[in-house]
Simulated scan of single mutants.
Amino acid sequence: MLADFLGLTVSAMLDSSIFSILELLVVPVLTVFYFISRKEKSLFFLLFLVSYSSADILHIIDGDNLSETLYFLCNSLYIFAFLFLLFEIFKTLNLKILIKKFLVQTIILLVLVVYLFTVLCGIIDPILFETEVLGMVRLLEHSYNLVLLVLLAVSFLNFLENDTRKSLFLFIGCLTISFSDFLLIGYYYLSDIEILNYIAIALNIFAFVMFYLQTDVEIDSKKKSNIFA
């Protein structure tokens, strides 16, 4: 009896709007915590958090029924957030070393990005969104996916080159946030299996935990072959 009651309570919480709001508050809270707790702050990483947090807050304000204006604004903020994170990674990436040591890996990743982007375009393009500006919606969706794929590839190359805990945490964060968004694409456009949504939320939260951990100055080391020490 108690087990059934607890099960119904948990299900009600998962299905409620409160759960969605709490999930959207994670990044804004983490942004405030980063601003307060970290003495040494990176401008690009802070802009990444602020942009992403702003988009999440707009989602909370408007609820589940986003207007077209807020849709474009939120997704533009997410794209800018990923671009800021990309700039953050480029600060520690030496293109000369990358081309000299990891040219083959770079080419393979470029091909993989093009392939995955083509697959995502094949999923998005046939969808008829309820809008009078269908072309702009598809352009925004494709831009979002392309930036995310490039971010994932660059974060992996950054890990290959620097081989530090900081670069590892950054890569894990980019990997999990990418999987989170790709699961959401599957959930919204291919299947309505609810568990995909919850897995995506968990991955998104885990990604930002990784992003926060990489800001610890104690792990920002250039020593090679010691990332698991």
Rank of each mutant, 00 (worst) to 15 (best):
50 V>L: 14
80 F>W: 06
97 I>T: 13
76 S>D: 04
121 C>I: 07
73 L>F: 02
119 V>K: 15
77 L>Q: 01
57 I>P: 02
52 Y>W: 15
101 K>I: 03
70 L>V: 11
122 G>K: 11
91 K>I: 03
56 D>H: 06
117 F>D: 05
58 L>D: 05
60 I>F: 09
80 F>P: 01
90 F>V: 08
86 L>A: 07
118 T>G: 12
95 L>I: 14
117 F>T: 02
123 I>P: 05
59 H>S: 13
51 S>R: 00
98 L>G: 02
74 C>L: 07
97 I>A: 08
50 V>E: 04
64 D>N: 14
74 C>V: 15
58 L>W: 06
49 L>I: 06
74 C>K: 12
75 N>Y: 15
60 I>E: 10
74 C>P: 05
110 L>Y: 04
117 F>L: 13
57 I>G: 03
73 L>E: 03
100 K>H: 05
83 L>S: 00
111 V>D: 01
81 A>K: 01
52 Y>K: 05
84 F>D: 02
71 Y>E: 08
98 L>K: 01
72 F>Q: 05
110 L>P: 00
113 V>A: 09
61 I>L: 15
90 F>T: 11
102 F>S: 11
89 I>G: 00
103 L>Q: 08
50 V>S: 11
126 P>R: 12
58 L>P: 03
126 P>V: 08
83 L>P: 00
72 F>S: 01
54 S>A: 15
83 L>G: 05
76 S>N: 14
123 I>E: 07
111 V>N: 02
78 Y>G: 00
105 Q>F: 11
104 V>F: 13
100 K>V: 03
77 L>E: 08
62 D>G: 09
77 L>Y: 10
64 D>K: 15
115 Y>P: 02
67 S>Q: 06
70 L>I: 07
96 K>D: 14
55 A>D: 01
54 S>E: 03
90 F>S: 13
88 E>W: 02
97 I>D: 11
110 L>Q: 09
124 I>V: 15
113 V>K: 06
97 I>M: 05
71 Y>N: 05
126 P>H: 09
67 S>M: 08
118 T>D: 12
61 I>N: 09
81 A>N: 01
97 I>N: 09
99 I>Y: 09
91 K>G: 01
57 I>Y: 06
97 I>R: 06
84 F>Y: 14
105 Q>S: 14
95 L>W: 07
123 I>C: 07
52 Y>H: 08
121 C>V: 07
114 V>C: 14
115 Y>E: 10
91 K>Q: 12
69 T>K: 10
62 D>E: 15
73 L>S: 13
126 P>T: 14
66 L>A: 11
109 L>H: 00
60 I>P: 02
89 I>N: 00
61 I>M: 12
113 V>L: 09
79 I>K: 04
63 G>E: 13
50 V>A: 15
80 F>K: 05
105 Q>N: 13
123 I>S: 01
